[in-house]
């Protein structure tokens, strides 16, 4: 960044304010999970791993964690083909009413989550699948689908159409061109989209809340229910699970596609 000293001071002051605001809840949760006391106090009553040990005995948290993982897997498995094909179709093929189709595919963002959740609850209730876990995964996929399409369409936009034409003129039939040229070229977009979908589904709260019952609560709903009763440090330990998953996802994202792609202009 170039410019006078006052510019750097002002901009960095605001940036640090952002950093504190962004990081504070994470740091607090992390610190609270290692406390030796029964309640979260300041200054902390010493360091211990007892809340993590207790976590291993809390089968309700463990089950909810596994259910959330399963929801995230279903969501990602569905979103990857659906979103990838849709993005390729919109950028590569001549689609009539493209503007309308785009607006339609943005419905998951324009319909508020609470309304989407209620609508899906009514549909899934009518076809009698409420009470199983897979509808939650499908719901998480539907409400976040634009993220997947964005991620892939960024890659498709960057792919030179001449490459596909070159493959075709070398005699590759359509499917081969698709599998050996188009798909590898959009892979970075598919990977970042898939990671995003996984994390968003793993975190999905309000739509989960509407679609689960007491037997199949997901992890965010379990944490929410516990917050409403009594706040003990074992809840902080569960939350650290989220921090760990987030760190792993960011590391993967950076290794596989580099975080810098999010700074690129369209």
């Amino acid at each position: 960044m170039r410019g006078p000293r006052s510019k750097a001071v002002v901009l960095w002051a605001i940036t640090w304010l952002n950093l504190v605001c962004l990081g504070l809840p994470t740091v607090i949760v992390l610190a609270a999970s290692f406390t030796a006391g029964d309640i979260v106090t300041f200054p902390p009553e010493g360091f211990s791993l007892r809340w993590y040990e207790r976590l291993l005995t809390r089968t309700d948290f463990l089950d909810a964690f596994l259910r959330s993982l399963w929801v995230a897997v279903i969501c990602t498995a569905l979103a990857v083909p659906v979103g990838t094909l849709a993005a390729i179709a919109m950028v590569r093929y001549r689609i009539r009413f493209l503007a309308g189709i785009q607006l339609y595919l943005l419905l998951p963002f324009t319909i508020p989550l609470i309304v989407s959740g209620l609508g899906l609850m009514l549909i899934f209730g009518e076809v009698r699948v409420l009470g199983s876990l897979w509808p939650v995964g499908v719901a998480a996929c539907v409400i976040n689908l634009p993220f997947m399409i964005w991620a892939v369409s960024a890659s498709v936009n960057a792919l030179d159409p001449d490459l596909e034409l070159a493959a075709a003129s070398c005699g590759a039939p359509p499917l081969q061109t698709f599998l050996t040229v188009t798909l590898p070229a959009v892979l970075p977009g598919v990977i970042s989209g898939a990671l995003l979908m996984f994390i968003l589904a793993f975190n999905e709260f309000i739509v989960s809340l509407l679609l689960v019952d007491a037997r199949i609560v997901t992890l965010p709903v379990t944490i929410y229910n516990s917050i409403r009763s009594v706040i003990t440090p074992d809840l902080a330990a569960v939350s650290v699970v989220y921090i760990v998953v987030a760190v792993v996802a960011i590391w993967l994202l950076d290794r596989l596609v580099s975080l810098d792609v999010f700074l690129k202009s369209k």
Binding site: L22, G23, L24, P25, T26, I28, V29, A32, V40, I199, F202, N203, F205, P220, I223, Y224, I227, I231, L235, A236, S239, Y242, I243, V245, A246, V247, A249, I250, L253, L259
Partner: peptide
């Protein structure tokens, strides 16, 4: 990305503790 990937409920819980 860290807070973005951590989810609303956990972040709200952090504010509750604070």
């Amino acid at each position: 990305f860290l807070p973005f990937f951590i989810g609303q409920v956990v972040r709200a819980y952090g504010w509750l503790i604070l």
